[in-house]
Nucleic acid binder design. Structure first.
Length: 429
DNA sequence: GCATTGCCTGTATGTCGGCG
DNA sequence: CGCCGACATACAGGCAATGC
């Protein structure tokens, strides 16, 4: 098993680390030197000392008087350098790569930044002492996809695969559950290596928006962005860093950006899940990324769960891995209607949320439901987590879309189509 | 209801061996 | 012999289950 030890895994911290390297380069200092980089990290607040009393210069002096192999900051510098290199953000000479440049050019927390992280994380590459190269995030996404959902601890197996081959994937997939495989001595790795395997990669994949879970007790599932990344891995193969093509175009600088206009002749030709993560994000993908971030909020998830709770007695429920919030259907009755639901929280403007949801419903009806439920009548509904103005409710009615308000115990229709859907559901046994 | 416990995750520190 | 990559270990915070 490949090891991935001694790291921090938060993207803001990794970004700060890259910034520290850049500022050292600007000063002509040598970031390849553990001491230089390690104590720079300490000064920049990237690396923090344990039992720190607040006097930084004094503490650094104290650390520097210790033997070098006992200075935590130096080790941290080495490990973080390694991580940034694996991510393709710096090269072997600790110089910033194009990708690293793009990361720092994007505003922190922006959709642009997330896009760069998604590229870096999906391409993350590790090499073992024998020269075997693998892309553990791709392998991790394959695992999640294969099992549908997977516990965090199983993700250590992503580092067990020596390479990206199908054979290796089959081999590690057979090692699930990892606890049993360890007990049976089927994995050659120390418990520390296995523990380390769980600490970094799942956190990176989660922050990239590739996987998500409802809460800590739940397994992870693939998100739409994760599915897109997986398709990219499967169809194109992870792209070796050495052959990294320049990303199309330059990212906008940090000057403020007006609302962007889409090219007027832009057509949707593929589903988002079929688009590669590599390269510049399409407008749809940017929206999908933004959407993902909003929809991952606890509040949205909670609302979805409440809806699910109230429909699960009578209907089979599906969550779209790549798209819709919820489909309620009776699988047994193959010509029966189905209900496509989009859930919207009202912390944002009700009008923009409504417009967004209407577009999503129509799009998903056309592109996401066709395969599995072709030929069925699709009833569409938007579920809000609060009350909406009558004008919105009647607008949706005019479109043939049901409107609902959900609470933890109720699902109340707000227009005629909503009442129609409810009336149908209550007849089901 | 509150304290305790134990697990999960993340971060800091220590150690070894190889290489130039 | 200094330096660094790699590996191992210690420690801390959060949180949920558990027990009273």
């Amino acid at each position: 098993m490949k090891n991935f030890p001694h790291q921090y895994n938060s993207l803001p911290k990794l970004r700060m680390s890259l910034l520290s390297i850049r500022s050292l380069a600007a000063q002509g200092a040598n970031a390849a030197d553990d001491g230089v980089l390690g104590y720079r990290f300490a000064q920049d607040g990237v690396y923090t000392f344990r039992n720190f009393d607040g006097d930084l210069p004094k503490r650094i002096q104290a650390e520097q008087s210790k033997p070098e192999d006992q200075q935590g900051a130096r080790t941290a510098a080495r490990e973080i350098r390694r991580t940034l290199r694996f991510l393709g953000l710096i090269d072997n000479h600790v110089g910033e790569t194009d990708l690293g440049n793009q990361l720092l050019a994007s505003p922190q927390g922006s959709a642009d930044e997330l896009r760069v992280w998604q590229v870096a994380i999906s391409r993350l590459e590790v090499v073992d002492p024998d020269g075997n190269t693998s892309h553990p995030i791709c392998i991790l996404l394959r695992l999640v996809n294969k099992f549908g959902q997977i516990a965090r601890e199983e993700m250590a197996l992503a580092l067990e695969a020596a390479d990206d081959s199908e054979n290796e994937f089959q081999r590690i997939a057979d090692l699930v559950p990892i606890r049993d495989a360890v007990k049976a001595n089927r994995i050659k790795a120390s418990r520390f290596q296995i523990a380390n395997g769980v600490k970094i990669l799942p956190a990176l994949a989660e922050q990239a928006g590739f996987i998500s879970r409802v809460d800590q007790a739940q397994p992870y599932k693939l998100t739409s962005a994760g599915n897109a990344a997986l398709q990219s891995c499967l169809t194109q193969g992870p792209i070796a860093l050495a052959q990294l093509p320049p990303l199309v175009g330059r990212l906008p600088s940090q000057t403020k950006r007006p609302v962007r206009k889409l090219a007027s002749n832009q057509h949707v030709t593929t589903l988002p899940s079929e688009n590669a993560v590599v390269g510049i994000l399409s407008a749809e993908q940017q929206q999908a990324a933004m959407r993902l971030r909003f929809e991952r909020t606890a509040r949205h998830q909670k609302a979805v769960n409440h809806v699910a709770d109230q429909l699960s007695l009578r209907l089979d429920l599906f969550e779209g891995a790549a798209s819709f919030d919820l489909v309620a259907v009776r699988e047994k009755f193959q010509s029966e209607r189905i209900v496509l639901l989009e859930v919207k929280t009202l912390d944002a403007d009700v009008i923009s949320q409504t417009r967004l949801a209407v577009g999503q419903l129509l799009y998903y009806e056309r592109f996401s439901l066709a395969d599995r439920w072709s030929g069925r009548l699709v009833l569409k509904a938007i579920v809000f987590d609060g009350d909406i103005p009558e004008t919105i409710a009647s607008f949706l009615d005019w479109l043939g879309i049901g409107a609902f308000c959900v609470t933890s115990t109720t699902l109340e229709p707000l227009n005629d189509h909503g009442r129609g859907i409810q009336a149908w559901i209550v007849t089901l046994t």
